[in-house]
């Protein structure tokens, strides 16, 4: 697909769960590919760089430390990460800076049900995180379908429907966009 023609799909089902003084986004996505294929997209650096918000310094499919580099235009922020659980092709859990990400892959008739739980400190950030992953997973879907549009990362996401998705998820989660 031509990159300029890319538009995100409609908002999906999400939830926001309180977790002590932190907040967990729960986002479920159905993918038309088997868990093993989705697993490689979630763990292999050369696959991640085509859709994820960060670059990984190693394959994430094994437990232990890693470095995830957030790319945003000309700037990059390196963040330490620790892969806490890696059970291919069904469970991947890692820290990313102060965040915790847990990916669960369940086989379905048509492919994989992917459930992401992303824990953050700010409740206000949850709709933004939902919008970010929504865009990333749409890009990943194109990649897995053999119709890549190239990664959409950082502030560039604002040109590809991120603000509208953020507002839609804020409404569906009942999270006030707050002081703005």
């Amino acid at each position: 697909m031509e990159r300029d023609a890319f538009r995100p799909g409609p908002p999906g089902e999400v939830d926001c769960v309180a977790d002590d003084d932190r907040w967990t986004l729960v986002l479920v996505r159905e993918l038309r590919h088997p868990p093993a294929t989705v697993w490689s997209a979630l763990t292999e650096p050369e696959r991640l760089r085509e859709w994820a918000p960060f670059l990984a310094d190693r394959d994430l499919g094994a437990t232990g430390p890693a470095v995830l580099t957030l790319v945003d235009g000309e700037t990059a922020v390196e963040q330490p990460a620790t892969v806490r659980q890696a059970e291919p092709p069904r469970l991947l859990e890692y820290t990313w800076g102060g965040d915790l990400l847990r990916w669960e892959l369940a086989p379905t008739d048509g492919g994989t049900r992917l459930t992401l739980r992303h824990t953050v400190a700010d409740r206000e950030v949850v709709p933004m995180v939902a919008a970010g992953w929504h865009l990333c997973l749409d890009v990943a879907g194109h990649l897995l379908d053999g119709d890549p549009v190239g990664p959409i990362r950082g502030a560039e996401a604002k040109n590809f429907g991120w603000p509208e998705l953020r507002d839609a998820y804020a409404r569906s989660l009942g999270i006030d966009p707050g002081r703005r």
Partner: peptide, 18 residues
């Protein structure tokens, strides 16, 4: 708030948060 910084600075939310 984070949202205000994201809007004001024109950088992404993950970048601001990190």
């Amino acid at each position: 708030s984070v949202g205000e910084l994201v809007d004001a600075l024109g950088v992404s939310q993950p970048t601001v948060s990190k």
